[in-house]
Design a binder for these strands. Structure first.
Lengths: 187, 187
DNA sequence: AGAGCGGGTGTACGAACGTACACCGAGGGG
DNA sequence: CCCCTCGGTGTACGTTCGTACACCCGCTCT
């Protein structure tokens, strides 16, 4: 039995290359050939390791959501009280939407590409649901379920709008919004 | 000078067809041929009326954002006080994310497709900026600029998450989030 | 009435795509 | 030492694409 004779993490490298290509030219411009070239593997490897394009995309976005959740959990896990949790949430919003960090623009681009697929194909919607579910669970370490749900949506909206804005809003605005949403109204 | 000899609103019909095709198969699956077939015009009309694919997409999404803004302004314009404005905002969120209305899934799909383009191409980012600018202006008829900005992001996030969720959240959660965000905190 | 113009269209070309599949060669079994 | 197995790969096919451009024909002007 020859096992991993050539390249034990060939698959993983293809998946990383796929995400790179998607971030660069979009799902629309992603092809087996381009991914293969970027990963430095022959074209035949594509159909050998993955059951066609859809399978490749699903694996790639699965890996992407995994690391997105990991970041979420890491930041929220480090917070020791509500105040720190609020700060962590603000950090996440600005981390995601910071224009000066190409790596973060990448996250935003990949999110949109995934949402676009999810809006049309159930298989990808499953990925986004799992992502949302785990994000909310992490928020529930610090906030009640309803607040967690609202906060999750707020993070999404703030990050998207901030990333697209001509002049991204200040941190103070983010913090203020988080504070308002996590403070029960008087009545 | 023969003018509009055949079809005065040929262009407009192509644009409508383009949005239909995008909603159905995505920007990735949209081709001149498919749009032409859907609009009932010859393939040659595509390059005649539009300077290539990018131009076509820009025109189509320009028309899309126009009607999205119109809906926004209509709903918010009809509100006569803060309470009605809050209700209008909740209406917009649920209108956008209602799973039982195919027309609304369409809006969500098109939004994501546009954001995906905007994340990569400046020409499309201009469209989303104008869209955000006008949405915020409509919100400012009832709320201060900072709140308007926060609310705009919240609407976005709630609509996206609600549309993708397994069990979409109740209206009460939306209303509660809007109330919290539009009520200054005590301290 | 005939000519000429120009808006509109059919077609053809080169490039790129996903995928199937015949083939190769290293390594283990006899 | 030979052969067979099977993981891995190169190539070729059929399809679809964007775009250019030669052409057609209804209309207007002389």
């Amino acid at each position: 039995m020859t096992f991993g004779r050539h390249d034990p993490d060939r698959r993983a490298r293809i998946i990383r290359a796929t995400l790179d290509v998607i971030a660069e030219v979009g799902v629309a411009g992603t092809s087996h050939r381009r991914v293969a070239a970027h990963a430095g593997v022959p074209l035949g490897s594509m159909t050998y390791h993955f059951d066609g394009m859809d399978d490749l995309l699903r694996e790639a976005f699965g890996s992407f959501t995994e690391s997105a959740v990991a970041l979420f959990e890491e930041r929220l896990g480090a917070a020791r009280d509500i105040a720190e949790a609020r700060t962590a949430v603000a950090d996440l919003v600005h981390h995601l939407s910071d224009e000066n960090a190409p790596e973060h623009q990448r996250t935003l681009v990949l999110s949109h590409e995934l949402y676009t697929l999810a809006a049309r194909k159930p298989a990808f919607r499953e990925l986004t649901r799992e992502w949302m579910r785990r994000s909310r669970r992490a928020l529930e370490w610090h906030f009640d379920p309803v607040t967690a749900r609202q906060l999750d949506a707020l993070i999404e909206g703030l990050a998207i709008h901030r990333a697209l804005d001509t002049e991204p809003h200040e941190r103070a605005l983010t913090v203020e919004a988080i504070t308002r949403l996590t403070t029960p109204t008087a009545d």
